[in-house]
Design a protein around this nucleic acid. Sequence first.
DNA 1: GTCTATATAACGATAGAC
DNA 2: GTCTATCGTTATATAGAC
Lengths: 205, 205
Amino acid sequence: MVNKENKNTTEERILESARQIFQVKGLQGARMQEIADKAGINKAMLHYYYRSKELLFEAVFEEAANRIFPKIVEFLNTDYPLFEKIERFVDYYLTTLLENKYMPAFVLNELNQNPERLVKLMSDRGIFKQEKFIEQINNAIKDELIIHIDPRQLITNIISMSIFPFAGRPILMGLFKLDEESYYQFIESRKKEVPKFIINAIKVK
Amino acid sequence: MVNKENKNTTEERILESARQIFQVKGLQGARMQEIADKAGINKAMLHYYYRSKELLFEAVFEEAANRIFPKIVEFLNTDYPLFEKIERFVDYYLTTLLENKYMPAFVLNELNQNPERLVKLMSDRGIFKQEKFIEQINNAIKDELIIHIDPRQLITNIISMSIFPFAGRPILMGLFKLDEESYYQFIESRKKEVPKFIINAIKVK
DNA sequence: GTCTATATAACGATAGAC
DNA sequence: GTCTATCGTTATATAGAC
């Protein structure tokens, strides 16, 4: 499912089980025994391949974080016109997260409990270079294509509307009385609704 | 701070300590010893007053959830005109959450790990009655005050932009290189920026 | 009500046979 | 590389004195 190049080695089976357990229960809530059971192997094997719970968790977390963050930057630095960039960005994120619906809550929670992980992520590579996108927004303001707005506020709004519906999935499902299928449809609609909403908010008419 | 009617009894001191520890570390991450230390009493007292860790946690969680959810509904059912209602709602939430910045991540995470708690919250009282607000939105569409939009999508956007900046606080602080003070200022600005953004997005010009 | 001391269980981790 | 058995620690929870 998640991992196409699954070689089905013991090491890979452990990682896949760890993904599923950690993403739902978090670092503290997960049990090594449960991960071993799901992988169909013994608890000792977890330590043979990953030494400790902490290291196994880090493997899972970094993989998840690397699926979210680098693409943000990649997108922000492409050469698409502003409105098209926003449309593509929202569509890409809703699609990705719909296939990994536990990931946002997992990553958000872990970064709240352990903000140092973010520092590590940022220094690992040139993540979070947003200068180009900010410049693009400022140019669009100068050209009177969009209204005057703090680029950081705009970016925050885009990210909020893309990620919150997943982190707050139980709330939305309760609030609007959605089952799995109608929740899926609701997010699908957002792929067009959210860009329309954003562009409406900033476009100079 | 958080609790004005603090009677400073042992029971209340325990609850206050539990609030602080649980909200940062979660149910599994918190240690009863740590809560006892912060309260300045012995570990046995926690069990004397709250029987178990689980029950102590529930006291904290329900208090936090009850500070977030009931006010949502209360607001949605007031008689303010649509735009004014949106302005007041966003302002109220950003103000409240700025004073309880760990709460959104805490509640979101707990509801993801234990969605049954939401069922309990919903059945406890008439929470989540949004019919009136949905009707108000639909009327505004008919009156050509706002563009055609699914009321649920609009509500989701409002909530997303109000709550995500707190649940994703470490990310925003890293992304925009904010310290505590400039983060506070950034949220303060949102009290005006977000309603403006939303009304721009839906207003018929 | 509040404390110290302790029971009891669970968990992460390792040793050592195969 | 994989297993069983077990160690060492830490956690929640309780018993019982004051």
